[in-house]
């Protein structure tokens, strides 16, 4: 018996050891994307969520690499419970009804931070929302595509009345065989407040691209039942900013807009854009 063992054990070891060499994958540097499609990253976060700054950092890296081709919207929902609830000494409560409606519409994640990239269900993925380490591949894939629609978004802000007037124009770059929706909202940068980061409580954390409110319906406004190549659709929206109270600072506010498909059981974003409402 011992002879058998003495014979078999080295054979097994040999089998494993000989297969240890492999050719690892190449990790090439980022190249400028060739497509015309932008991406919208809808991130769900929380001020008491220790891992959520990881999501912010990843969005920052993607914006650094791809610039304005990336439209980030960070949302705080009620459903994520204490993770998104403000701390007792927080200045702001970032949670919104719109975030709540959207997270339920996209499918609740197992944890946060989690985000959808262009609301697309990518191959092999079980859900629209995924963790930060899965966003880059999706962003890269989407940026290589051609946009099926174009969006032109103009914003005009009157400091006296705090009225924002937004003109949006959607142009079909191809035949769109089903209904589409327009989603528009306001995000604010540079909001300083508390944030849990790992095992540290940061007193003055800069919260960026925080969703403040939706201008369209939370789940979008209908555009047209279908669109032919070259067909356009236009609409004007207005929104009066609430009084500035540490937040709602006009120069920090950006309006974003994106068009999503609403057929074939898909919610894929077809194109996204954003523009500052005010530059004094």
């Amino acid at each position: 018996m011992r002879k058998k063992i003495i014979f078999i054990a080295p054979l097994i070891a040999l089998f494993w050891m000989t297969s240890c060499d492999e050719i690892p994958p190449d990790i090439p540097p980022i190249q400028p994307p060739t497509g015309s499609k932008n991406v919208v990253i809808e991130e769900f976060s929380g001020v008491q969520c220790p891992n959520c700054p990881v999501g912010d950092a990843q969005i920052g890296n993607l914006k650094a690499l791809y610039g304005d081709r990336v439209v980030a919207v960070t949302m705080h929902a009620f459903v994520t419970g204490v993770l998104s609830a403000p701390m007792s000494d927080s200045r702001y409560d970032f949670r919104t009804d719109a975030a709540e409606a959207i997270i339920k519409n996209l499918g609740l994640p197992t944890g946060i931070p989690a985000a959808s990239v262009n609301r697309k269900l990518f191959e092999g993925q079980p859900a629209l929302l995924s963790a930060p380490n899965q966003w880059a591949a999706k962003v890269e894939e989407e940026l290589e595509k051609e946009a099926l629609v174009g969006i032109n978004l103009q914003a005009n802000y009157d400091p006296a009345s705090r009225l924002v007037t937004m003109d949006v124009r959607v142009i079909a770059n191809d035949d769109i065989s089903g209904p589409t929706r327009l989603h528009m909202g306001l995000i604010e940068d540079g909001m300083i407040d508390k944030q849990i980061d790992g095992v540290t409580k940061i007193e003055a954390y800069e919260h960026n691209h925080i969703l403040r409110d939706y201008i369209t319906n939370n789940l979008g406004d209908n555009i047209l039942p279908e669109m032919d190549l070259g067909e356009t659709w236009e609409r004007r929206y207005t929104y009066t900013l609430p009084e500035e109270d540490g937040w709602w600072v006009a120069e920090n506010i950006t309006v974003f807009g994106f068009v999503s498909q609403n057929f074939d059981d898909k919610k894929d974003v077809l194109q996204a854009t954003k523009t500052k409402i005010y530059q004094p």
């Binding site: 494993w16 240890c20 492999e22 990790i27 090439p28 092999g124 880059a136």
Partner: peptide, 27 residues
């Protein structure tokens, strides 16, 4: 391959100081 490609896409966003390689096989 799909998992490795996804990993590579994420690692491409890393700055050089944090850059790491990927192995297909773990023993």
């Amino acid at each position: 391959d799909a998992t490795v490609n996804e990993l590579v896409s994420d690692l491409r966003t890393y700055t050089p100081v944090d850059s790491v390689g990927v192995n297909y096989n773990t023993y």
